[in-house]
Design a protein around this nucleic acid. Structure first.
Lengths: 156, 156
DNA sequence: TATAAATGGATGTACGTACATTAAAGGATA
DNA sequence: TATCCTTTAATGTACGTACATCCATTTATA
């Protein structure tokens, strides 16, 4: 599939209520584009974008064990069903589930060596991909982050 | 749920490879925030974000009939399974499916009066919501759109 | 015209989201 | 200690995504 640059071409529409409305659609479209590009790369490793996200979170604390709740609150998509994602990672033996000693309600997760290995390789690829497809200089990227943080300031 | 403003707080992480990487995560998080906010509003009308998107596309051509393919290429998320979304809209009698006369492979869709009605009311609400939560001036919104279109210029 | 190739849509499967419910364990209080 | 309330995961359901496959029809080509 080929990705079209201008929003108007991408969604075949050029009527927007105002620039804010257009920016909203642009955010949604760009997120889809980014997620799709990354997912295609991850497919070679048999990982989904969400599974990769969980592995990265585990890596951040490794070799500490970390509970499901803590993973959930670090996810980009807050309504992710983390136990389900872990089911699949566990089936592939990339993580290990254990009941917590300190609080037996908690399930505690840790990366396996296979998990560390696949994460290393896939992260290399994802980093290369991002460098290739997200062409913007550091200065502009920082401006972009600032504008996105501005736009989220409305009450919800 | 409460939405946290800064990305670092939202995903409890402050280590990014560079500003471009951070901007990428910011795009993904902002898109999730926006989609979630809109979905909550649409829930009152029994609509999902995607069903709403299809209704809007139909409205753009109303009272013309429009085929599934043409809806698909106007969707923000290009891999949307449009026939399935239409199944649900049809079950709620918000759209009508007919075999096309000119090309009998095509299925042609049109809004029902009920569909027009629900779309009118829900669009009012969505517009008010966007005005409330996306707080940024027109100038900055245009800059944001420009940066997003810049960032998508990488080959894919 | 007969046959092959391409197109449009429906359908199946694995996975994820959004949200409600359940079950087990912990904490608080009478 | 017995009872209630909260917390943490797991699980169920409806819906959507990503992708493959199937079927009917149209178009291209021999």
């Amino acid at each position: 599939m080929e990705f079209i640059m201008k929003l108007e071409e991408a969604i075949k529409s050029s009527k927007f209520r105002n620039e804010v409305h257009k920016a909203g659609l642009n955010i949604l479209y760009t997120a889809w584009w980014l997620k799709t590009s990354m997912s295609k790369e991850l497919k070679e490793y048999g990982l989904t974008h969400e599974q990769y996200n969980v592995l990265r979170i585990l890596k951040g604390k490794h070799p500490e064990h970390i509970c499901v709740k803590e993973i959930a609150c670090r996810m980009i998509e807050k309504s992710s069903n983390v136990p389900r994602i872990i089911d699949r990672l566990e089936a592939k033996k990339l993580v290990k589930r254990t009941a917590s000693d300190s609080d037996r309600r908690e399930t505690v997760i840790v990366l396996t060596p296979a998990g560390i290995n696949i994460l290393q390789h896939s992260t290399d690829r994802i980093n290369k991909l991002m460098d290739k497809i997200m062409v913007i200089d550091e200065q502009k990227a920082a401006e972009l982050s600032q504008l996105l943080e501005d736009i989220r300031k409305g009450e919800t």
